[in-house]
């Protein structure tokens, strides 16, 4: 890797800075606050530092992902954007009709589809995948709108940067979405 792209650099710097900060705050807690705070307050403080460190590591991981994203397959985002739109119309919307029908037809149809969603891993993964396709279209769509209304530049360098950022934001949201349903 001869040159690191600017997005990766930003995340790696933020991650490193925050990890260092978490380390210092942790040391401060262990050595200096220990004598001044009671056990429960100290424990709360330590939990804060712990999560701070986790999130710093998260930023570093995002940076490493961004570093390897240059010219990646998934960065042909205009193509994937149109493709996801086609999938939404021909698959996500028809499935949403089915889901809405089951959810609103009767109490027993509501129970059976929510139970299917909770117990059948294949059905759940399928629905989650459709939700992610929809979200992908929304994330890339916001990027295209910002370009359409000239809020971000359409130059090659700027487009590559915005597609890396869009993909990272989408991946973070995808993880949150999957986590929300598990």
């Amino acid at each position: 890797m001869s040159e690191i792209n600017i997005t990766a650099k930003l995340f790696l710097l933020l991650g490193a800075f925050n990890a260092a900060l978490a380390e210092m705050l942790g040391a401060f807690g262990a050595h200096s606050l220990k004598t001044r705070l009671n056990v429960s307050m100290l424990k709360t403080y330590e939990t804060g530092v712990e999560y701070h460190l986790y999130h710093s590591l998260g930023l570093i991981i995002v940076g490493i992902i961004a570093m390897n994203l240059t010219n990646n397959f998934w960065l042909r985002s205009s193509g994937w954007y149109m493709f996801s739109g086609i999938i939404i119309f021909f698959l996500v919307l028809p499935v949403s009709v089915y889901a809405l029908m089951e959810l609103s037809y009767s109490q027993s149809s509501y129970n059976s589809i929510t139970q299917l969603f909770d117990t059948n891993i294949v059905f759940k993964s399928f629905i989650l995948m459709l939700i992610l396709v929809f979200k992908y279209h929304i994330f890339t769509g916001v990027r295209h709108m910002l370009m359409d209304f000239h809020l971000i530049s359409e130059s090659l360098a700027s487009s590559q940067r915005s597609s890396v950022i869009t993909l990272i934001l989408f991946l973070i949201d995808a993880l949150l979405t999957v986590w929300m349903f598990i």
Binding site: F89, F90, P94, V97, M101, S104
Partner: peptide, 16 residues
């Protein structure tokens, strides 16, 4: 796709 669009709209209206 126009036919599918009509089918989707009518289904949504009917279900809702």
């Amino acid at each position: 796709f126009v036919a599918i669009g009509f089918a989707l709209t009518i289904s949504y209206f009917y279900i809702i």
